[in-house]
Design a protein around this nucleic acid. Structure first.
Length: 465
DNA sequence: GGAACTCGCCAC
DNA sequence: AAACGTGGCGAGTTCC
């Protein structure tokens, strides 16, 4: 990547930033070595049991027979050969290089019960070999010291390694617990985590200044995702406190709004939503496959959709296409125009400039030229705040320490007696000082905080407010 | 026997 | 017209 700050301020941000980050690296993160050893043994035994069962299956025996006993169940090359060449299963999903895929989605689709064990084995090995192992390998006196880099990412975000602190399981409940139970504050302390809510959407609005989107951001009573759920699922009296409606709101948010903002289109969105809210197995379905609406929509919506003339995945896809047109054409036309303008700027000059003074150049696609400046500037809001919090801790001689950062959040190994002070100061830094310092921030910013009990693990954190 | 590659999968 | 952005890393594999 080409590091190219165009202003003194941009240079200074990374200069101060890397110093603050290096202090976090030095402080490190405490890990529970006894837990790691115990859990690794436990996982190993569990994996062995699953492997034994898998190796007893007819599926495996057939596989083994075809290669004269030399099966490596970790090898996807061997697995792909067996599935697609020996068993002649039709390739429904390809890898980037055009081979038959053997990932979670591809295996799910084959509907071979024995493969469930293989997927479970993969998941447990991921936890053991990628996370617990690396914590043990990298720790010094019970602390890991992940690196935080500012010179590797083309969007001017950060990256982390040795171990990577930015990809610790969060969504999968089981994996999250297994790994985060290894991560602790220093003795007598608490882990305090502060993250910006909806940061990238808000920063995007600072570029395009679309009035309708600004209104959604500024008016706490408005709810864009609920409005989209209403429109996509044809619900008149939407109420997000109704559990089923809340699920549809999530489906609209993660299956339509965010992908559209990132540059995806209605085709993928329709399928992803059909998979998200229930019954359609994850995968790249063709809308033309004639899948009936009742086979993937919950009962209470199925008749409802049919009464509106949407009876298949194909028709649902066309429905989402109309919503996409409405989304960019009527709801957020200024945003849509900005995207066009922005890509044209890149085509004309060969670069795009971030609001924070950095320049992205080199080969970029349409989505890249639009996404990079948003992603980068959003991270810079976090970095600026991180530097201020670091400074505050040094100036006040606090005992708490910043220990890490994950793009839009920061983590502190906090002395309990300093938590209240820190929480208030950080709210001021992030929500008041930052927008005051950077005049281009024309939207309100907001943070969520979470905290672990004293001497509790990162898996035990709960909302702080 | 190490470098470079593919694949799969974790995060935001 | 085109069709989801950014990383790190482990295991297996291939190349030299």
């Amino acid at each position: 990547m080409k590091y190219n700050p165009r202003t003194y301020e941009a240079y200074q941000l990374f200069h101060d930033g890397i110093l603050a980050l290096s202090r976090a690296e030095q402080a490190g993160i405490r890990v529970d070595l006894e837990y790691i050893d115990r859990k690794k043994d436990h996982l190993t035994r569990k994996i062995e049991r699953l492997e034994e069962r898998f190796k007893g299956s007819d599926f495996f025996k057939h596989w083994q027979h075809t290669v004269r006993g030399k099966v490596n169940i970790n090898s996807n090359v061997q697995l792909a050969h067996f599935l697609y060449v020996i068993k002649k299963i039709k390739v429904e999903k390809e890898t980037a290089s055009g081979q038959g895929a053997t990932d979670d989605e591809a295996l799910q689709k084959m509907d071979i019960p024995e493969l469930e064990d293989l997927l479970e084995i993969r998941k447990l090995k991921k936890v053991r070999d990628t996370y617990l192992d690396s914590f043990k390998r990298e720790q010094v006196n019970g602390y890991i010291h992940p690196f935080f880099n500012l010179h590797l990412v083309k969007t001017y975000r950060s990256s982390s390694d040795s171990p990577n602190f930015q990809n610790i399981p969060a969504r999968d409940e089981e994996a999250m617990n297994l790994v985060r139970k290894a991560i602790f504050p220093s003795v007598g302390n608490q882990l305090l985590e502060i993250d910006f809510s909806g940061l990238e959407v808000r920063i995007a609005a600072c570029y395009h200044k679309d009035p309708a989107l600004l209104k959604y951001i500024r008016d706490p009573k408005s709810d864009m995702h609920a409005d989209m759920a209403k429109q996509i699922f044809l619900i008149k009296d939407f109420d997000k406190s109704v559990p089923s409606h809340y699920i549809l709101r999530q489906a609209a948010k993660n299956g339509f709004v965010f992908p559209e903002f990132y540059g995806d289109y209605y085709g993928n969105c329709a399928i992803s939503m059909a998979c998200t809210w229930g019954k359609l197995p994850q995968g790249d379905w063709e809308p033309e496959q004639g899948i009936e609406i009742g086979s993937f929509v919950p009962l209470f919506l199925s008749d409802h959709f049919i009464s509106k003339g949407i009876t298949s995945l194909g028709e649902f896809t066309m429905h989402v296409k109309k919503i996409e047109n409405d989304f960019w054409g009527r709801r957020f036309p200024d945003y849509a125009e900005w995207k066009e303008r922005w890509f044209k700027i890149y085509q004309k000059y060969g670069y795009v400039d971030l609001l924070t003074g950095f320049r992205c150049s080199g080969q970029m696609g349409r989505n890249d030229s639009i996404n990079y400046p948003v992603q980068g500037a959003a991270f810079h809001c976090l970095l600026w705040s991180f530097i201020q919090v670091d400074k505050l801790i040094l100036d006040k001689g606090l005992k708490s320490r910043l220990i890490g950062q994950i793009h839009d959040s920061m983590i502190i190994d906090a002395d309990p007696s300093e938590v209240a002070f820190l929480a208030e100061a950080i709210r001021r830094i992030t929500c008041e000082d930052l927008p005051n310092a950077w005049k281009w921030i024309i939207v309100p910013l907001d943070v969520d905080m979470a905290i672990s009990p004293i001497d509790g693990s990162w898996a035990d954190k709960s909302k702080l407010n």
